[in-house]
Write a protein that binds this DNA or RNA. Structure first.
Lengths: 139, 139
DNA sequence: AATCGGGTGCAAACCGGTTGCAGTTTTCCA
DNA sequence: TGGAAAACTGCAACCGGTTTGCACCCGATT
């Protein structure tokens, strides 16, 4: 199975729960928080989910970022063979409906850091109001 | 006094504590968390500091962002007459020494949002290791 | 001086995230 | 094949940052 292979490829033993968590993140239409994962996987304990996504993080299966909602969001790395800084995209968080949009067309513009600084991860998030909510507000 | 004028200009009554908080943020060499403000202003209660910066936020005297440290950082808006999205700069957070650097030379490259989306704030943060910490690590 | 409303301190609640521990399952080797 | 060791999971408690309820205080206004 596809999911199993991706876990194994990164050195993560594909237990039943891990496959569930991975699948939930894969099939979600947006990056998910721990709470959202907990909701989606009612049978699984939150500490297990936490440890699972932490494991995924360490093995570069997913990445995490803060979108301005106050909680971390987790997202599957697009590139199965390693998710580099350049691959990261911008996120848009709607303060009204609380949905987090990926803007995959918008790659994060690179910045030249001061001499000696080393970037390990990048977070570019825009907060505002999405199209749907704005058209509602205007009425 | 300068500080008093800036508070009043934005419709914030300049109480003694508010001036203290504003001054602390102004004179800091980096954006500060609530905990850091609490430390800098030992006589002031943390809930008061919280309500003060929240008030500042509402009146666009400061802006807040999450730098990857786990806590929000507050920073005086550079432009006293309103802090627009274009004025925002990039932050660098060192996971080793936990210092947050402003990279004011690096204005955030603009992104064209999908039709109908409205940006209200922007957060572009890079996490990694700063020059000082890196040279230490290498020894 | 009495009154009123905003400002402040204290304590407690809250919430997302994290950990300790015990029970269960899997692995692996004698 | 049995049985110990290691890995995985659930439960409950904890933690730190943030937020709120409430009572008191203080300055402004009548």
């Amino acid at each position: 199975m596809e999911i199993e292979a991706r876990l194994e490829q990164k050195g993560v033993k594909p237990t039943a729960i891990r496959k569930l968590v991975f699948k939930a993140l894969l099939s979600a239409t947006e990056p998910l928080s721990l709470a959202q994962l907990e909701l989606a996987l009612e049978t699984v304990d939150k500490s297990t989910i936490f440890r699972t996504v932490t494991l995924f993080l360490e093995h570069h299966l997913v990445h995490a970022f803060e979108d301005g909602s106050g909680s971390l969001k987790y997202e599957i790395c697009q590139n199965p063979y390693g998710c580099s800084v350049e691959d990261m995209h911008i996120h848009f968080y709607c303060r009204n409906c609380q949905k987090t949009y990926c803007l995959p067309s918008a790659h994060i513009p690179a910045i030249t850091l001061p001499e000696g600084f080393v970037a390990e991860s990048v977070n570019y998030t825009i907060k505002g109001v999405c199209e749907k909510c704005r058209s509602k507000e205007e009425r």
